[in-house]
């Protein structure tokens, strides 16, 4: 059996390693996640947050429209009346309890669309994994943004 050294061994080796050499010159694709983070897209939807007005009052008025819009039924809202001494939101009522079951939530953003005051916003914080089921019931205290310093 005749065997051509050039076309049988050297040429395929050069073609094969040529691809490797070309790839070496390219930009590295891997995102070094825990050290560096890639930029999230504009419409990325992750962890919810309840936002406030500029004067520090809560935007949420406890209307439960988000709970109605939620396809996974993971939002629970309990409303109560505002009084002049105890004012949480500018409207008539405010949410006394606001709970989201993060493990059932599918981050579709329908709550954000349904909210008439723009109180609930889906932010880009995706590091939500945890060990116990109970840790995924996010209460109002966890969701509400802290007051801005005056």
């Amino acid at each position: 059996m005749s065997f051509d050294l050039i076309s049988g061994v050297v040429k395929p080796l050069i073609t094969g390693f040529g691809i490797t050499a070309k790839r070496l010159a390219r930009k590295k694709v891997t995102v070094q996640y825990p050290e560096k983070r890639r930029e999230q897209y504009d419409r990325t939807r992750w962890r919810h947050a309840l936002v406030r007005h500029d004067d520090g009052l809560e935007k949420c008025i406890g209307c439960s429209l988000c709970a109605g819009a939620c396809p996974a039924k993971c939002i629970y809202v309990e409303a109560e009346d505002n009084t002049d001494e105890n004012r949480f939101s500018p409207g008539e009522r405010y949410a006394v309890r606001y709970e989201i079951n993060m493990i059932r939530c599918i981050f579709c953003g329908l709550c954000q669309e349904a909210c008439p005051t723009g109180a609930i916003v889906l932010k880009k914080d995706f590091e939500l994994a945890n060990y116990k089921r109970e840790q995924f019931i996010y209460t109002k205290k966890m969701l509400l943004e802290s007051k801005r310093p005056e």
Binding site: V31, R38, W46, I103, C105, C108, F126, L128, N130
Partner: peptide
């Protein structure tokens, strides 16, 4: 437990 629908690779 990893929440998300679906969780992104980073999650």
């Amino acid at each position: 437990y990893v929440p998300g629908c679906p969780p992104s690779p980073e999650a």
